[in-house]
Simulated scan of single mutants.
Amino acid sequence: MPAHGTQTITTGRQWVLLILGGIVTVVVVLAAVWVIFTPRPANTPEENAGGRPAPAAAPSPVPVTAPTAVVAPGTPKPASCNEIYSPDMVAAFGDLVLNPAWTTEPGADVRVGADDPELRAIINASEHLSCRWVSPAGASGSGVSTSVVWVTAEQTAAVEARLRALGMECYEELGGLRCITETSAGADSIGQSHFLRGGIWLATQYVNAGPDGYTHDMVNSIWAGA
């Protein structure tokens, strides 16, 4: 029989304590596993090393669609201004030259073939060739500027309507429509000639220059054999 004051744990009580300790251990382990493997909510931002939310992924770039060409199959398409003039027309310009370097410099004083804002807007928005016969030394008081413009049927109708609204004289010629106007400002002769045919618009401005048959020569060169 043990002395007074000494506690004795019976065998039954030891088993109870062992079972309780095992249960507590299992609960702790299961809690740890739940914390580790439970997925984070979808709207919980991932945090970087600095404790701030990581930036969202950049949006994908929007593809840019190239404009569709308006040139209809079979429409003549000269690659350069050199292809739209005959040798005789080139010789007829004398001291004026085709597209000298200064005409492409920023801020160059050049014309586009029409002085009306609505017509210029169509030229600038469309595929075109800029062909200018001017002095090689720079802007002067004479020259001829033509834009060879490829246009849709709708644009052709809009150009014709605008030319007529501006009071130009229009008539059928060489399988197309020709519209002309000419004015005088002092000693200067200033005019325009426009020709529409089969998806092409020849828009021409001239000041104190322009050999006879200039538009006819372009038409015969562009539609050679037609």
Score class of each variant (00 low, 15 high):
100 P>A: 06
194 H>V: 01
211 P>S: 00
128 H>C: 01
97 V>Y: 05
42 A>G: 06
220 N>A: 08
121 A>E: 06
48 N>H: 05
175 G>W: 14
96 L>P: 05
70 V>Q: 05
43 N>P: 00
193 S>H: 10
1 M>E: 14
178 R>E: 07
203 A>G: 02
24 V>R: 08
146 T>F: 02
85 Y>R: 03
225 G>Y: 12
156 T>D: 06
200 I>N: 11
137 A>N: 03
166 L>H: 08
37 F>T: 11
23 I>V: 11
145 S>Y: 05
101 A>W: 05
35 V>C: 04
124 N>T: 08
68 T>A: 04
168 M>Q: 15
38 T>N: 13
86 S>E: 13
32 A>F: 13
16 V>W: 15
84 I>K: 05
116 D>A: 06
50 G>V: 05
77 K>D: 07
162 R>V: 04
88 D>A: 11
182 E>R: 10
54 A>S: 08
59 P>T: 05
147 S>M: 07
93 F>Q: 14
25 T>C: 09
52 R>C: 13
102 W>M: 14
15 W>L: 12
99 N>L: 10
58 A>F: 03
62 V>N: 00
108 A>M: 07
144 V>S: 00
65 T>S: 09
3 A>S: 15
145 S>F: 07
130 S>V: 07
58 A>K: 06
138 G>M: 02
215 T>W: 04
142 S>M: 09
114 A>S: 09
135 S>F: 00
134 V>N: 00
13 R>L: 15
18 L>Q: 15
183 T>C: 09
7 Q>C: 07
120 R>S: 13
215 T>Q: 06
224 A>M: 01
205 Q>W: 13
172 E>C: 00
147 S>Q: 10
45 P>V: 06
79 A>K: 14
190 I>L: 12
39 P>T: 01
53 P>H: 03
30 L>N: 06
123 I>H: 03
77 K>A: 06
214 Y>K: 13
38 T>L: 02
96 L>S: 09
97 V>P: 08
176 G>L: 02
151 V>F: 00
202 L>F: 07
67 P>Q: 04
201 W>L: 11
150 W>Q: 07
119 L>I: 05
147 S>Y: 11
57 A>D: 11
109 D>E: 10
149 V>S: 02
220 N>I: 04
219 V>K: 02
182 E>I: 03
43 N>A: 12
173 E>D: 14
145 S>W: 10
150 W>S: 00
